[in-house]
Design a protein around this nucleic acid. Structure first.
Length: 791
DNA sequence: CTCGCTGAGATTTTT
DNA sequence: TCTCAGCGAG
């Protein structure tokens, strides 16, 4: 099954590739799976393969379809490809699943049953649309929280299911399906699509329209998919539509080649619909003839790599892969146990300062954690030590409220029926249109079956007056902006909407105004980058046509290659404004406010995927946190936690630090945590314990790992924020007043000897959960039960 | 309309 | 404990 690694034809592109990489780059036509370990040069292989296919004349640029998950990955691929070959990368179908589906739907909007100006709802918009819907139909939001409905709808779409396809197992299900149906109708009426809809609509159009499907099947000779382990059911089905035929329900691979690149060990998005099983299905259904493993790691020293390998070997469901490196062992992986999360943070900062003294750049140091809430303590410690840091995550540029407001104005210009946008701005800035007027308007709109914008004339009275003024303002703006450049449109809207004025009056509005000005810049650079200049559009088409001719392909077939995705029949393209709005929805922008600065990097493990640093600190390695308590109960999600840990470890190039804390302030309570089981799954030889192993008297093996943590009110007060001034506290000080600790062996007069598995409360309320070998697990009030430590 | 209170919820997240 | 959404009072 595995491909012969004989050296293929020479090409400068193939220089400096190892045999596996080279084999992957030069795979013959046919379907293939590339198992690419962390740091194995996956992106390089993917891009080089595209370049090689083009260079050897096996395919024209138009015959390539390369799909990624993030805009960042897509951009990187295009940049690298552009550096390898003098080819117009913008015109190629390289992009995210959603970006490509958008392009496809823009070209075939009519066939897809969409208005040509359809706009995209992001997650926020989707939630507010659902809330609005549920209010309208008087759905009990106690029983059906809007968030849950959103989750349900998105989940269904990820599985490729329309309301009628969803199986109802309960009355609640039936209600949710009904809401899903109503939501769909609302979106259709308003001319908007959510992220899931982009995928699902595209899939359905391919499935139901033979000429369209056949056209694209003929066209995309080579399909390449990055991060295949993260694909969901629908995305996999979409690929099948492009790559083969599903006549009479059975899939038969087509003539085109599909190369899937992925790493099952790095699958960490099951919670949002990703299905690792797609990899195995792919091998079977696509009758994969070549599988290649990229196991040579170019990133980390072997102590780090061995740790990763050993850890992940505890997962049973794997395709099987072991990373290796030619680099030496390097530094040992350092492990630190602290008494409190404050002390842990303090230790991290101290270590970092030492690393800085050793000449390591701050931006080469990262602190990783399982959940966002953990960043706080770390931030405080860094702040107090005056170490510059940057936190990933949080609001992105296009998600900021003021930006969303401005975009809503712009969207309503483009599509007057977009009720979500209408509601967002109808009274922002405030113009005397309150809840009552809006309700009246909504009733009128529903009665007339029209959009809010169109229903305004039906509302009388003072409310009607204000509303009419608003709509008139919008209509005037729409008129005025005809023929204007994108920049002029935005400036005019910012001015006439009153947004700028509104924020000027606000004491804390300065940042918001700055962001709004940044929006103008974003639009400006969008125009230049996307090639909106008049001649910039024409050029790539010509080039492509020429290259098609030289490849002996039909020059007259429709070329849907321009970034603007013109209508497939008329060639009409979106207005710059509509294109920019699409861009804003599909690419929520950076959240790296001060990117480029030399600052320490803080992020969740999820956010770290795909990144690498010289020095990595993985903090909070405690049972209940990492692995997370919600994932400890079932085996599948525990394996995902382990993969998450694997991802975290493999981010480090030179040094890796692991830490856990005996206590942690969480939700305002002090939790007593035992160290993560993952420590027991690492090779002892690669580790160096900075604190004595198992210090603190507990023996994890004595009682297994069943939710061994407890909470205690007020116990955290003894480690105030002041402790930041002092060096790390020795572990002994953490014990609460009763002197008991998780893991301790204790004696009880009636039950005999047992192990403390959890502690909760303080003072008179203090309770301990004790596991007695003969009597099982008991909760004991410490004020009543006499527990004596066994020495 | 804005302010301030109350109560629920508090993994992970891209598009 | 903290945050944020939703709601009632001024």
């Amino acid at each position: 099954m595995f491909t012969d690694l004989a050296a293929p034809a020479d090409s400068p592109l193939l220089e400096n590739l190892n045999p596996e990489q080279r084999a992957a780059v030069t795979l013959p036509a046919g379907n293939a799976l590339i198992l690419a370990g962390a740091g194995s040069g996956k992106t390089r292989v993917l891009t080089t393969r595209i370049a090689w296919l083009l260079q050897t004349g096996q395919v024209s640029p138009g015959g390539i379809l390369a799909v990624t998950f993030t805009n960042k990955a897509a951009k990187e691929m295009m940049t690298r490809l552009g550096a390898m070959l003098p080819v117009n990368v913008r015109g190629m179908w390289i992009g995210t699943f959603h970006g490509l589906c958008n392009r496809f739907l823009r070209a075939h909007w009519k066939l897809a049953g969409l208005p040509s100006t359809f706009q995209i709802l992001d997650t926020q918009d989707q939630l507010s649309a659902i809330k609005r819907l549920m209010k309208q139909f008087n759905v009990d939001d106690e029983r059906f929280p809007a968030k849950q409905t959103q989750w349900f709808i998105a989940g269904a779409k990820e599985d490729g299911l329309r309301p009628r396809d969803v199986e109802a197992r309960s009355d609640d299900d039936r209600k949710k399906i009904e809401l899903y149906q109503l939501y769909e109708e609302q979106c259709q009426r308003e001319g908007v699509v959510d992220f899931g809809e982009l995928m699902l609509r595209s899939y359905e159009l391919l499935r139901d329209n033979d000429p369209v499907r056949e056209h694209y099947q003929r066209r995309f000779r080579h399909i390449l998919i990055d991060e295949f382990q993260d694909t969901n059911r629908l995305q996999y089905a979409w690929i099948k539509m492009l790559a083969g035929n599903t006549a009479d329900g059975r899939f038969v691979p087509g003539d085109n080649s599909v190369v899937a690149v992925g790493d099952d060990d790095q699958s960490i998005y099951a919670f949002r619909g990703a299905r690792v099983g797609n990899m195995a299905d792919f091998v079977r259904e696509f009758e994969v003839s070549h599988q290649i493993k990229l196991e040579q790691n170019y990133r980390s020293y072997s102590n780090i790599l061995d740790s990763a390998n050993e850890l992940i070997s505890h997962n049973k469901k794997r395709l099987g892969k072991n990373l290796r490196t030619d680099q030496g062992p390097g530094e040992p992986v350092r492990v630190y146990e602290s008494t409190s999360d404050f002390a842990e943070a303090q230790w991290v900062v101290e270590e970092m300062r030492q690393l800085m003294r050793d000449g390591i750049d701050r931006k080469e140091m990262a602190i990783l954690y399982r959940s966002n809430a953990q960043s706080r303590v770390l931030e405080t410690a860094l702040f107090n030590a005056a170490v510059p840091y940057r936190v990933y995550g949080g609001l992105r540029f296009f998600e900021r409220a003021e930006i969303k407001h401005a975009l809503a104005y712009l969207r309503i210009l483009e599509n007057k029926d977009d009720d979500t946008s209408f509601l967002r701005i109808v009274n922002f800035p405030p113009r005397g249109i309150g809840a009552r007027s809006i309700e009246a308007l909504q009733d009128a709109a529903r009665a007339a079956g029209r959009s809010l914008h169109d229903a305004v004339s039906a509302v009388g009275g003072k409310a009607g007056g204000n509303l009419s003024a608003f709509v008139a303002k919008i209509d005037v703006l729409r008129e005025q902006t005809q023929g204007m450049s994108l920049r002029e449109i935005i400036e005019l809207v910012l001015d006439h909407s009153g947004l700028i004025e509104h924020y000027k009056a606000d004491r804390e509005g300065a940042d918001r105004i700055e962001n709004l000005e940044e929006l103008v810049n974003a639009a400006e650079s969008f125009v230049t980058q996307e090639g909106f200049g008049r001649d910039a559009v024409a050029l790539p088409v010509d080039e492509l046509r020429q290259s098609s001719v030289s490849q002996g392909l039909d020059p007259n077939r429709p070329l849907l290659d321009e970034p603007l995705a013109p209508d497939a029949e008329t060639g009409e393209t979106l207005s710059p404004l509509a294109a920019f709005l699409t861009h804003a929805a599909l690419e929520s922008g950076d959240n790296q406010a001060q990117a480029g600065q030399d600052a320490v990097q803080l992020m969740t493990v999820h956010a770290a995927k795909g990144l690498e640093f010289d020095c990595v600190f993985i903090t909070g390695l405690e049972e209940g946190l990492f692995p997370h308590e919600n994932s400890m109960s079932d085996y599948e999600s525990l394996e995902e936690e382990r993969r998450l840990m694997y991802v975290a470890i493999t981010r480090a190039r030179k040094r890796l630090y692991l830490s856990h804390s005996q206590t942690r302030l969480l939700h305002g309570q002090t939790r007593y945590n035992i160290k993560s089981r993952f420590f027991d799954e690492l090779p002892e030889g690669a580790l160096k314990w900075l604190t004595p192993k198992n210090q603190g008297g507990f023996a994890p093996s004595a009682f297994g790992y069943g939710g061994g943590y407890a909470t205690s009110r007020g116990a955290g007060s003894s480690y105030g924020r002041e402790t930041f001034a002092s060096p790390p506290v020795p572990p002994q000080k953490a014990a609460p007043s009763h002197g008991l600790r998780s893991g301790m062996q204790v004696f009880h007069n009636k039950f005999g000897e047992g192990t403390i598995t959890a502690l909760e409360g303080s003072g008179d309320d203090a309770r301990a959960q004790v596991n007695f070998p003969r009597h099982g697990v008991k909760w004991l009030a410490l004020s009543v039960a006499k527990l004596t430590p066994v020495t």
